[in-house]
Design a protein around this nucleic acid. Structure first.
Lengths: 168, 168
DNA sequence: TCAAAAGTTCAAAAATTACTGAAAGTTTAA
DNA sequence: TTAAACTTTCAGTAATTTTTGAACTTTTGA
């Protein structure tokens, strides 16, 4: 396979994966393009490479920056803004985990705690099942939360080393 | 909070979480409803509870069965089909992990292996960056894969026990 | 201070995804 | 073999999400 074909496939696959996980396809594609670009790119270059509009490019770049996956760069003597993606896979994974935890896991845990307080009749089977399901999901959510918190602090080598130790 | 309000909030939240993770909102809501229902429910009951059409209910139930999260039950002397959700959170987590691994991770690993074979000029910076990104993502994907495989085999207690051991 | 170049916004259009409802299919009991 | 009870399918419609593009704002150099 040629490089140009490989690049296209990579961008396409990253976009598909993103959309399967609730991330805008274009945002994932821009990220993919930046991941395989040695230099920071301008809005123009991204627009052209992916054949998308200026507005779309601008908004998705802003989102990527919001996710902490892309940074703006300025080259001295130039007005244009350049965009660069951190290429360290471990940082990317941590960043995504961190954002999704904040946006999704934290609110769900808050709700589950409220739902743990629901009052009802202990003879009511509906009530018993509700309580039990909420309790179990809450427990799982907290385990995941704790694991993520540790992962966010961890060094890559230490993390995988430890994982493999248990999964010997 | 009353049970009826809690049930509604739980169903709503589960649906929202699902849609954030690329799972059809209705499918997640049906799953939520079954999770808090002590008895298996009929299509009619689900339709009524969630105010959705018969066709929608039928298709999403089929998908839930395809994900291994719901099973059909037959009550003797009755023609109707009943639907029941496994309430063991660990089983649910494993089942979801298993399906997403099969549907998404496995194909991505296959592609990354192909992309590792892309030939090019070692002096070309685009080529070098491409190779390096593909290689790193491939490594991460394989680590995740290995961890999931172990998790799929594991007992819950053993799994969390071991996780907490490293995250002491 | 102005105008060119770049960046941002957002209403409208397009694309995608989900849902409905009625028709067709299937199963069972008599 | 018929018909009632139930399930499945899918074309058309609706809802949601994404994208465009043109107007608007900001920045900078002359």
């Amino acid at each position: 396979m040629e490089l140009s074909e490989g690049r296209l496939k990579f961008i396409e696959a990253w976009g598909k994966l993103g959309s399967e996980w609730g991330i805008n396809r274009t945002m994932a594609q821009i990220h993919a393009l930046l991941l395989i670009s040695p230099e920071a790119l301008t809005t123009e270059e991204i627009m052209e490479e992916l054949t998308i509009s200026r507005g779309n490019t601008n908004m998705n770049l802003r989102d990527l920056i919001g996710w902490g996956l892309v940074e703006k760069q300025h080259k001295s003597g130039e007005r244009k803004e350049y965009f660069y993606a951190d290429k360290d896979t471990w940082n990317i994974a941590r960043q995504v985990a961190k954002e999704r935890k904040k946006r999704e896991l934290d609110p769900i845990i808050k709700l589950l705690n409220e739902l743990s307080e629901v009052k009802g009749d202990d003879k009511d089977r509906n009530y018993k099942t509700f309580r039990s399901s909420v309790k179990d999901i809450n427990k799982l959510a907290k385990n995941v939360n704790k694991t993520l918190e540790t992962m966010l602090k961890a060094e890559e080598s230490w993390f995988w080393g430890s994982i493999f130790k248990i999964f010997k």
